[in-house]
Amino acid sequence: MTKLRILSAGPMTSLQDAGRPGWLAHGISASGPMDRGAFERAGLWIGGAGPTGIEFTQGLTFEADGPLAFAVDGGAYRLTLNGAKRSWPSRALLRAGDRVEIVPGAHGNYGYVRFGADIEIEAVLGSRATNSVAGLGGRALAPGDILCLGPALARRTAPHPRATAPIEGATRVIWGLHAERFSLEARQQFVGSAFVVGSRMDRMGVRLIDRSGVFRDAAALSLVSDAIVPGDIQILGDGTPIVLMRDHQPTGGYPRIATVINADLDRFAQLRPGAEVRFLPVTVTHAQELMT
């Protein structure tokens, strides 16, 4: 059995798989990778990856004690294998004692390592995804952690799958559950203004800096708690917008002006603090056409 030793790990490094959908009625959101596309690409590129991978943030160093295929993708990190520079994204076959070091590069908050073997960890409600808010499933990783991997999976030759989403441009949204509770002026300014990604971000949500004061005068509304989906943009009582992400609470009572569409949520998750973000409303039909 191959063991993987974590030598260094940035904050919020966790195990993720495709997620844990289907348990909202029990108060559990689906979790899963912040950048689903990157997670999937890394898996496809191996040509036979285990369902569970590592989501990392500000860097990751690990070594394996036996042969192990791996691929990395997501954002733009810098990768070295035994000190030799490799391209990003990348794939390789590790030998015993090989050391992989990943450090932050030009852009992105989240990167993924997938392996040509299963990471052996118990499933919780059918998934190995770490839900950081509910403290459920998977696990957070720290230096010194050792992961056990099962036998090597059968692999076929696979070309690198291309990322399809455009890297630039506005973040597209569908008007939200409470959009009409906001004044016409606030809605117009929400579309016309630039927001800035704040430094307070995690798997639950990303705070935005409302530089133009779009929601400065938004009245604190008393709303009945209702269903939340990933990408919902809620406005706190003090006017702070928060984009809710994969470990969102299943329900919430803050007004939601819009929802980031699925096709743009991965890209949004990769925006670093300080990045400017503009929102562009689209129809549900258009958003769904972009998903296929």
């Binding site: 959908p21 289907g22 909202l24 009625a25 708690s225 269903a227 299943p250 039909t285 769904q288």
Partner: peptide, 22 residues
Amino acid sequence: VMEVVPNLVSVLLRYDPRQVGF
């Protein structure tokens, strides 16, 4: 429809747009 979620005053249907449109 992949998931039916009753809330305090609403029901959320989570669906696969490749199978059914809004």
